[in-house]
Computed example of a mutant assay.
Amino acid sequence: MGEMARAFVDRFRYMAVRAGRRQVSTPFGMLALWETFVDDCREGYDGTLYEYRDQLSVRRFLQGVLDDPVIRDAPESGWFAAEVTRIDTEFRALLDAGHPVPGGTAWWDRRIPGLAGENMAESVRNHFGVELDIA
Rank of each mutant, 00 (worst) to 15 (best):
G47Y: 02
R11Q: 12
G104Q: 02
G114K: 00
M15S: 09
P100V: 15
A82W: 15
L62D: 01
E118Y: 12
P113G: 11
R86E: 10
R53Y: 05
Y14W: 14
A121I: 15
Y50A: 12
L33C: 05
F37A: 03
G103Y: 04
R111P: 04
E131T: 13
M4V: 13
A82L: 11
P75L: 13
D40Q: 11
T85W: 14
L49I: 09
R22Q: 11
Q23K: 12
E122C: 08
V130L: 02
A135M: 05
W79C: 09
M4F: 09
V130T: 06
V38W: 00
S123A: 08
M4L: 15
E118K: 10
A5G: 07
L95W: 00
T36Y: 10
V70W: 02
D67M: 14
E35P: 06
Y45R: 10
L95R: 01
G44Q: 02
G129C: 01
E131I: 09
Y14N: 15
R60M: 08
R60P: 01
I87H: 02
V130F: 06
T48I: 06
R11S: 06
P75A: 10
I71C: 01
P75E: 12
R86T: 10
E76R: 08
N119P: 11
V70T: 09
Y45P: 03
M30T: 04
D10K: 10
V38Q: 03
G129P: 01
W108G: 00
E35W: 03
G20W: 12
R59P: 01
A74T: 04
L62K: 06
A106H: 08
R60I: 07
R11H: 06
T105W: 07
D133I: 13
V101Q: 07
M120V: 13
E43I: 05
D133V: 12
D133E: 14
G44R: 07
D67P: 03
R22D: 15
R11A: 03
Q63W: 10
E131Y: 14
G47F: 07
A135Y: 15
H127V: 11
L31V: 00
L31E: 01
G29A: 02
P27S: 01
E51W: 07
A97R: 09
G29F: 02
P69E: 02
G78F: 06
G117A: 11
L56Q: 06
W108Q: 05
F12G: 02
Y52A: 09
F28N: 08
G103S: 03
D133L: 14
G103F: 00
D67H: 15
G103W: 05
E131L: 15
F12C: 04
I134T: 15
G47W: 12
E122W: 13
M30E: 05
L94Q: 03
G114P: 01
V84R: 04
Q23H: 08
L115K: 13
V38R: 06
V17S: 14
D68T: 08
E51R: 14
A93Y: 08
R60V: 11
A7L: 13
V101A: 02
A135S: 10
A32D: 10
D109E: 14
P69N: 00
F91N: 00
P75S: 07
R92I: 14
V65R: 03
R86I: 09
V17I: 15
